[in-house]
Each structure stands twice: as structure tokens, then as C-alpha cells.
Design a protein around this nucleic acid. Structure first.
Length: 804
RNA sequence: GCUGAAGUGGUGGAAUGGCAGACACCGGGGACUUAAAAUCCCCUGCUUUCACCGGCGUGCGGGUUCGAGUCCCGCCUUCAGCACCA
């Protein structure tokens, strides 16, 4: 067999990409005959920088699964689209005076071209683009449905305001007190904002995690973010005559409440300002607290501050004791009732506050030393100084006290969540217009469904104004409209939706992307949902993933989609770092451009390296030498074409190695252990080189195993060597279990746990017959000369350990 | 502070409680070549030794076990997420 030709990645990659595009081989089939498989990657934001080496890591990983599933006989929908609304595009447009839609088109075209060069098996016929009016028509439609069900509302409230982007942010978008996107300072600002009531789905979002198969850290992070806690609300009588309601998770410690703390913004303060003998001091504290940004509030959280409300006292409902009431910014208006009962003996924050201001500390759960530290253990303590609760465990006391409070009408069981409603307004141009009209007579009126999509108007300027209004506000022609209800003059909403809107349901649109009667056909939804496997970044766990689960569950509740949960399985990739181990960024100068790598080594080598570089879920530094090593491996694979022999089938001396490889690769792909799968194929290739030649069938198996990672070179070799039909149409290889059985196996012989020699033993040697066998074994006898073994342990196929 | 993950050669990393360092990268040697590159073959944890043979080795200190990178207890360090949520 002759040597064929040089390995030329550029030529063969182009050839096969063209072939797949022309034949539509990789597109989903419209027939519903086969079992379906729906893998998903997070659709990219088409930034001006182009593709990052991080994108192909997730894409290749899911492409491998998609390609393997096709060979396993599934109808696979592996889609791609563009999450194209967003600030960077808008900022670029502002700076250069180009319409964001023009910028978006250019960026999308560039991204598509870059992705196509990498040979992903996306179904490009189903592309979606969140900025396409035919798409955002349905984003707006979902918003109107949410409004209809009372889940969208407009509210004056303090929001997180990025001073640099001049835009309101959801809690999820504030990281360490600064804007997630630009790092600008975030302050609190009262603004009228559209809100989505995700809080009413808090419990459903927790419960739904039971029905899906997310990696543990994703489920945990979602649960923590939703932050469910169980406790009670309790009323304390005030000397003013009204009641102060608090939320506590430790109602069992009620006897130990020695003072109360309310948030500086609590309405009670202003209500009773006349009674306060130190109102000036209180007002000064309030003002100081209001001025602090969230960042400052958290930075200073070690040192407690506060002011007593002199002139107001509260009464402990159980002991009848009068206790003082303080204001402090460690109590947040936005959680619970904005007021707490302080039990310094059993809460760290209350303890620190009490120590600072000399407030009494009364132990009600025995087990610690409450003068030195709060005792917060709820497992071991026993109630003391607590009347009828004395002697009970914390758990029993909780139940007893809540029953008592409910019976006496002093309080009740209560579940709280940390999750806040979703701030859905952005004072920006490049987003979906919110299809609502404000009418002086009718209030907020939804746009009728037949007027969707409400398109973005053409404007001259894209900058938000300094007072925080959207650029759309300046478009009087567009803003002034007739009320859909009464026909009178009215104004359109000028805020737009956040970037998370379009990405909350895009996986539904892929299923039926060109439908103009519904967001997708119910029959199609029934066949394709849920997404079987969704891979993405950990950074989206509390943002995109939670939001889209919320929308999907809502759509389920109103009968639009057939499944409660959108995604069956969620996995996560690690970041690719610069070669210096730091995050890749322009300013650090450690950015690797995928195009350069493809130019030098080819797409297959690039894909291979991204999968080989290390454990898939871990952050890994990029090493160009490592990528070159992967190219070297493909060169070696290519040369196998010149090592073909005349043999048929799998020869005896390769059967074992090939089947070990088939088994390892098949299992490892499923567990995303791509690095060890590739290592197994490298080992097999090394073995083939040792042997000096391979048969067509042997090479065929290797090519097929490698195909999901390196689709171009493998198809080319398959064709060039006349091995069989296109690899995409061949069934995935099965393990021949018989070939995995060897006659003898080398084991290690240890003395007291140290390896002394290796011997070959029959592979079917059992523990029971081991002693007899080794008694006659020359090597073992030699090792034991003059020594008496106390014990022998034989682990079949592994080792023999002799204890002296 | 809380939660989670992780610490293994010069580097990236492998190892259902069973031969630590698979597979690569880097480095070294050899073959081929006028030469270089590429390619092929060999070596490559540290340490003693001419060599054989040894000794030591998975962040640190204990423990369980015939046997621990892996399990348990106590620390240290790094990374990620959350951060006054009562």
C-alpha cells in the first residue's frame, strides 16, 4: 500500500465543511421516527473581538456528544444562534456612529464564519438571532403573558444603579458591589422599574431541581441563591401601642431576645418621630446609611453601627420584659419584615452588636460560653432560661414555640427566600422594547398581541441621558401613541428589556425557528423537549440558568410548553487561561486568537488540543506547545494510511488493544473525560506503530472513535483508504467483550506493601486458588527464602501482597 | 466569615482503596541528512551507585487498613461562588 499524500488540514477541512453544508448531513431531521437528542451550548454574544478560545471548548465538547449520538441512531438537534442585544454593541455604535443593527450583522457574520471553520455540526438552518423582530416578537409575547398573569409589574423602588453604564441592574448583576459588566460603582437609586415576580416561583425553582440531572455545584449554587429559610414571624408589642413584626429562623430563642433592631428605612421610625427624644441623632444615622452604596455597606460589615430609638420600647411577648429598640444598617429593609429580634447569645451579628453597645446577653440554649462568643450550634444545645421550653432540644423547642405562638395569635410559621424580584428594565436602546403603553386614564395598558412585534425605532443618538432615561424617550414620534384601550393620547414605555430576556427562551425557538403563528409548534415542542444536555459556564448559574428555568416553568403553567423543566442535564466547562495562568485579556496581552491556531495547525488539531489539555471542568492555561503536540498526533494518525496491510477485520494481536480503546473512549466521552479518551487513542496509535501495519478495519475503528473530536481528517482518511461509508453514517463501534479477556495477566508481588517483582498469572486465577498457585510459583518462592509469611492477599488481576 | 472545589515531576495532567506519575509538553541521546528542520527509535520524579541493588517521594501532622494520592480527624495554602438574608 502506497503513501497517499501530505496531510493538508486547510484543504480537507474546507472540503468537508462544504460537503456537510451542501448535503445538510448534520441538520436535524424533520421526521419524528427516530429517538431525539437535543444538546445545547450557550449561544454566543457576537462581540466585535470575534471568537475567543473559550467558545470552542464548550462547543467541541457538545459537538463530540452530538456526533456520537448521530452514530448511535438519534435524530440530533444541535443548534446555534446569536444573543445579540447588549451593551458592548451599543457602546461601539455610540462611539462610531454606526447603527447597532449594522454592527450586529457584521459581528454575527464574522462569528458564523469562525465557527464554520471549526467544523461544528450545528444546524445552521435553524439559526436564531435575538435582535431579529421575528424573534423578539415572541420575547415580547412572553412578556405580555407574564403581565397578564400578574407577574410583571412596575414599581418605584431602590435599584442597583451602575454609575458608569447609567443603567439599572438586577441583584445578580452586581458583583462585589460593582457592576458585573464594566466594574463601575453601583449605587442605590430610586426609579420606576419593570419587575418580574420570580419570587413567586422560588419554591417551584427549588423543587424542580429534584427532577433534573445538574452537576452538584450548579444545583447547590441555585439553591443557595434562592436561599430558602424556615422560621416564624412574631409580633412584639411596642410602648407606642402598635405592633412590630419580626422574622426569625430561631423562634426557639425568643426568651433570649434582649433588644430589637429595625432597618434605618423602616416606616416605624418616621411614624413615631415625635416620640423620639433623640430624633436628630436618628435622622443623621438614617442619612448616613442612605448615602452608603451597597459596596460600602458590605465592606464595613465587621464593625456594627446603630442608634437606639429613645422613647420607644418593645415588650418581649413571652417574658413581658421591656427591651430597647435600635436602628442599624445590618438589618435590611428588603428581607423579612425589615426588623429583627436580637438574641445576642445565639447569633453572631447580634452578639457583636450587643458587645459594642453593652446590651445584655442572656443564654437560652446551653452548650457554649455566650459571654465569649455566640453559641449558634442547633444540633447539640438544650434550652434553658426559657420557661416551658426548658430541657428541649433546639428542634423540639422550635416546633413547640411556633405552635404556642400560633395558638396565642402572637405569630406564625413563615418561609422566606433571599431571591429578589427581577429588575427587568434597562434604560438603553439596544434591547427589546417593552410592549406597554402608559395612559393617563387607563394606567399601564399592554399592546394588543396583533401589534407585535413592537419594533425599535431608528434614532440618531444611542446614549442614555444623564438623568437615566432611555434614548427612546427622546423619540417623541414613537413615544406618543394612542392608548390601545381608550384611544386617548398615551405614551409608550421607553425602557427596554435586559439581555437576559432573549436568552431565556431561545432553546424553544430552535425547535421551530420560522413559525410566525406561535413561538413554536406544540407537536415539535413535544418531540424535542426537554433539552437533553446543556453545557455552559458557571457564571450563568444564578443569572441565565435561573431566569430561563423561571420563564420555562411559567410557560409550562400556562400550557405553552409540555415539560416543567427546560434542561435535563447541565454541565459546566472550565475557563481557558492565558499561558501565564491568568485570565485572558487584551490588557494582559495573553489572548490567543483561534484563527491563528487554525491557520497554523488546523481545526482538528485545535479541537483536539482543547479537549486534551486537561479535565474539562477545570480552568487550564493555554500552552501552544501542547497544541503542537496534538498536531503531531494527527500527523501520526495520517501516516497510518501508508501503513495499511492486506488484512481483513480485526487481527488477533490488535483485538485486545482496540477493544480496550473502544470501551475507554465510549465511556469517557459520556463523562466528558475527553482528555483520557484522547490519551487512550494516542496509546492505540503508538501500539499500531509498534506493530508496523494496520488493516482497513482496524484503522476504521480508530477513525470512528476519533471522528467526533477530529471530524475532517477522519472522514478524509476514511474516504482516501476506501474503508467504508461516511463515518457520520456508520454506527458507533461496540465493544467485543470476548476480546477483552486475556489468558495471562501480569501482577505485582509485594512484600509488606512494597513491590518486589512481577509475575504472569492466569487471568482467571481466583482468590481461593491463589495460595496453592503461588506456593508453586518460582519467583515467589525465591522471594520468600528463609521467611515465613503471616498472610497472603491476592487481588485478582492486580497484585499479591505477602505480609511477613 | 460561610459554602464548594482543588493541592501529584521542570510543565499540562493520569490513577473503581491495589504496581503513583498513563497520555502529552519541555529536555537529553541515537538513527536518517552534506547540514538543519521534519520524522522514527530510546531515555527522562528525586536520590545513592560505575552498575546491579537500594532509599525517599502525591501540601503538613496524626489515624484506619495487609495496602492510602484516594477513606477518617486536625491544620496550611490556592481558586471559585456567596457575603450582615436574622
Amino acid at each position: 500500500m502506497g503513501y497517499f499524500k501530505e496531510y493538508d488540514p486547510a484543504a480537507i477541512e474546507k472540503k468537508w465543511q462544504k460537503h456537510w453544508e451542501e448535503t445538510g448531513t448534520l441538520n436535524a431531521e424533520s421526521s419524528h421516527d427516530k429517538p431525539k437528542f437535543y444538546p445545547l451550548i450557550e449561544f454566543p454574544y457576537p462581540s466585535g473581538q470575534g471568537l475567543h478560545v473559550g467558545h470552542p471548548r464548550s462547543n467541541t465538547a457538545m459537538d463530540i456528544i452530538a456526533r456520537k449520538r448521530r452514530m448511535e441512531g438519534y435524530n440530533v438537534l444541535f443548534p446555534i444562534g446569536w444573543d445579540a442585544f447588549g451593551l458592548p454593541t451599543e457602546n461601539f455604535a455610540i462611539k462610531n456612529g454606526i447603527h447597532p443593527a449594522v454592527v450586529t450583522k457584521k459581528n454575527v457574520d464574522h462569528f458564523r464564519e469562525q465557527l464554520k471553520r471549526l467544523g461544528f455540526s450545528f444546524d445552521y438552518s435553524r439559526e436564531v438571532n435575538t435582535t431579529d423582530p421575528a424573534y423578539y416578537k415572541w420575547t415580547q409575547w412572553i412578556f405580555l403573558k407574564l403581565w397578564e398573569k400578574g407577574l410583571a409589574y412596575k414599581s418605584e423602588m431602590p435599584i442597583n444603579w451602575c454609575t458608569s453604564c447609567k443603567v439599572g441592574l438586577a441583584n445578580e448583576e452586581v458583583v462585589g458591589g460593582v457592576c458585573e459588566r464594566c466594574g463601575g460603582e453601583v449605587i442605590r437609586k430610586v426609579k420606576s422599574q419593570w419587575m418580574l415576580k420570580i419570587t413567586s416561583y422560588a419554591q417551584k425553582l427549588i423543587d424542580g431541581l429534584e427532577d433534573v440531572n445538574f452537576i452538584e455545584k450548579v444545583s447547590t449554587q441555585q439553591r443557595n441563591w434562592i436561599g430558602r429559610s424556615e422560621g416564624a414571624e412574631v409580633d412584639f408589642a411596642l410602648t407606642t401601642g402598635d405592633k412590630l413584626r419580626v422574622y426569625t429562623t430561631r423562634p426557639d430563642t425568643l426568651f433570649g431576645a434582649t433588644y430589637m433592631v429595625i432597618s434605618p428605612e423602616h416606616p416605624l421610625v418616621e411614624k413615631h418621630r415625635a416620640l423620639l427624644t433623640n430624633y436628630e441623632e436618628v435622622a443623621a444615622y438614617k442619612e448616613a446609611a442612605a448615602r452608603k452604596s451597597d459596596f460600602e455597606r458590605t465592606e464595613l460589615n465587621k464593625d456594627k453601627t446603630g442608634v437606639e430609638l429613645k422613647g420607644i420600647r418593645a415588650v418581649n411577648p413571652l417574658t413581658g420584659t421591656e427591651i430597647p429598640v435600635w436602628i442599624s444598617d445590618y438589618v435590611l429593609m428588603g428581607y423579612g419584615t425589615g426588623a429583627i429580634m436580637a438574641v445576642p447569645a445565639h447569633d453572631d451579628r447580634d452578639w457583636a452588636f450587643a458587645k459594642k453597645f453593652g446590651l445584655p446577653i442572656i443564654e437560652v440554649v446551653a452548650g457554649g460560653d455566650v459571654q465569649n462568643a455566640a453559641f449558634t450550634d442547633i444540633q447539640t444545645g438544650t434550652l434553658v432560661n426559657s420557661g416551658f421550653l426548658n430541657g428541649l432540644s433546639v428542634k423540639d423547642a422550635k416546633k413547640a414555640i411556633i405552635d404556642y405562638l400560633e395558638e396565642k395569635g402572637l405569630g406564625e410559621r413563615k418561609v422566606n427566600f433571599k431571591l429578589r424580584d427581577w429588575v427587568f428594565s434597562r434604560q438603553r436602546y439596544w434591547g427589546e422594547p417593552i410592549p406597554m403603553v402608559s395612559c393617563p386614564c387607563c394606567g399601564w395598558v399592554p399592546l394588543p398581541y396583533d401589534q407585535l412585534p413592537l419594533k425599535l425605532p431608528e434614532v440618531e443618538k444611542y446614549e442614555p441621558t444623564d438623568d437615566g432615561e432611555s434614548p427612546l424617550a427622546a423619540m417623541t414620534d414613537w413615544v406618543n401613541t394612542a392608548c390601545p384601550k381608550c384611544g386617548g393620547p398615551a405614551r409608550r414605555e421607553t425602557d427596554t428589556m435586559p439581555q437576559w430576556a432573549g436568552s431565556s427562551w431561545y432553546f424553544l425557538r430552535y425547535i421551530d425557528p420560522h413559525n410566525d403563528k406561535a413561538l413554536a409548534d406544540p407537536e415539535e415542542l413535544k418531540y424535542w423537549l426537554p433539552v437533553d444536555w446543556y453545557n455552559g459556564g458557571m457564571e450563568h448559574t444564578t443569572l441565565h440558568l435561573l431566569y430561563s428555568r423561571f420563564w420555562h416553568r411559567f410557560l409550562y403553567d400556562i400550557g405553552v410548553v409540555p415539560t416543567k423543566e427546560p434542561y435535563m442535564k447541565r454541565t459546566s466547562h472550565g475557563m481557558i487561561l492565558g499561558s501565564n495562568g491568568e485570565k485572558m485579556s487584551k490588557s494582559r496581552g495573553n489572548v490567543v486568537n483561534p484563527d491563528d491556531v487554525v491557520d497554523e495547525l488546523g481545526a482538528d488539531s485545535f479541537r483536539l488540543y482543547e479537549m486534551f489539555m486537561g479535565a474539562f471542568d477545570q480552568a487550564i492555561p493555554w500552552q501552544t506547545d501542547g497544541a503542537r503536540g496534538c498536531r503531531r498526533f494527527l500527523d501520526r494518525v495520517w501516516k497510518l494510511a501508508s501503513m495499511l496491510n492486506d488484512g481483513n477485520g480485526i487481527s488477533k494481536d490488535l483485538a485486545y488493544d482496540i477493544n480496550v480503546c473502544v470501551k475507554k473512549v465510549s465511556e469517557d466521552y459520556e463523562q466528558m473525560k475527553y482528555n483520557t479518551a484522547i490519551a487512550a487513542m494516542m496509546t492505540l496509535v503508538n501500539t499500531m506503530y509498534q506493530k508496523g501495519s494496520v488493516s482497513r478495519d482496524e484503522l476504521g475503528v480508530l477513525l470512528q472513535l476519533l471522528n467526533p473530536v477530529a471530524p475532517h481528517i477522519t472522514e478524509e482518511m476514511n474516504e482516501m483508504c476506501h474503508i467504508g461509508p461516511e463515518l457520520v453514517r456508520k454506527p458507533w463501534p461496540q465493544v467485543d467483550e470476548k476480546a477483552l479477556v486475556k489468558d495471562t495477566v501480569e501482577i505485582a508481588v509485594q512484600i509488606n506493601g512494597k513491590v518486589r517483582c512481577r509475575v504472569n498469572v492466569p487471568s482467571d486465577l481466583t482468590r481461593e486458588s491463589a495460595d496453592a498457585y503461588f506456593a508453586g510459583c518460582e519467583e515467589v518462592k525465591r522471594l520468600l527464602e528463609g521467611k515465613t509469611p503471616k498472610k497472603q492477599i491476592y487481588v485478582p488481576g492486580r497484585l499479591l501482597n505477602i505480609v511477613l
